[in-house]
């Protein structure tokens, strides 16, 4: 495949007078480990929402594997292989992890409309869910209501759910946000173990995580792309240091 896995062309979004995304053009090759950083209010969340289809752009286009998906609703983009995690957990509190994962897998396989068989009778779905539970260390918690799980476990389920969609492109919106120090290693391990052929765009505040994970970094400031490059270049760039790294106190 020659076309980038994920591409945006001149993506813009205005809220009244505010330009939250300003002519953003990104290209992520297949298997990319790309991080998107920027100070608060830089428009990272807006960009994610434009990519997933939660928001419609004022101008510009979103392409998945070279296909224009700008007009597609978010659930349709998921079917095209674009999945995301959320900065603030978006889980099903009264469903169990096993149920949540089977739901996601079943939807991907197009079994979601089946009304007369029990969800547990779908062997393929159950096997895959078991495997994901195992991989994310959720096997023991699989039959507890999600809202009763420890926060770190919920965070892992957040990522597992996105992976259950078998995405070709995965957007990780601050996966480590709010995770206490002692549960952080689990998240890092989970991120490191993500399938190599999945294209990943990581939106993150935590510079440590970004520099450990990303092979390319884009810096977003005031809705606009300030620069893009390898972690070393970005870290060394005086402009970036001025607007971003300096501000967060990281060196």
């Amino acid at each position: 495949m020659n076309a980038p896995a994920l591409e945006t062309r001149g993506l813009s979004r205005r809220f009244g007078g505010l330009i939250a995304s300003d002519n953003v053009s990104l290209k992520l090759e297949r298997g990319a480990r790309h991080a998107l950083i920027g100070p608060n209010g830089a428009g990272k969340t807006t960009l994610v929402n434009l990519l997933t289809g939660t928001l419609r752009p004022s101008a510009g286009a979103v392409l998945l594997d070279g296909e224009d998906v700008t007009g597609l609703a978010s659930h349709a983009r998921v079917r095209r292989g674009l999945a995301r995690t959320f900065q603030i957990n978006q889980l099903f509190g009264n469903l169990t992890p096993a149920e949540s994962l089977c739901l996601a897998i079943g939807e991907r396989l197009g079994h979601g409309g089946r009304a007369l068989v029990s969800a547990g009778q779908d062997k393929a779905v159950v096997l895959e869910a078991t495997e994901l539970l195992e991989r994310f260390g959720l096997t023991d918690a699989m039959d507890q209501k999600t809202r009763r799980l420890a926060y770190g476990k919920q965070r892992l389920l957040e990522i597992a759910l996105a992976l259950a969609c078998r995405p070709r492109v995965l957007l990780l919106d601050e996966p480590a946000a709010g995770v206490p120090e002692n549960e952080r290693a689990d998240i890092l391990a989970a991120l490191a173990a993500l399938p190599a052929d999945v294209t990943i765009l990581l939106i993150e505040h935590d510079m440590d995580l970004v520099f450990r994970f990303a092979r390319r970094i884009s810096v977003l400031v005031a809705g606009r792309l300030l620069m893009e490059g390898e972690p070393k270049q970005v870290a060394a760039d005086p402009q970036v240091r001025a607007v971003y790294l300096g501000e967060s106190g990281h060196d």
């Binding site: 978010s74 959320f86 978006q90 889980l91 949540s100 996601a104 991907r108 079994h111 089946r114």
Partner: peptide
């Protein structure tokens, strides 16, 4: 059923249900 799961999921969290397709 899978259908029932999806309906319950929509009640619990429509945003995420949507993000799962």
């Amino acid at each position: 059923s899978p259908f029932g799961l999806s309906v319950r999921a929509l009640k619990e969290n429509p945003l995420r249900a949507n993000a799962l397709g």
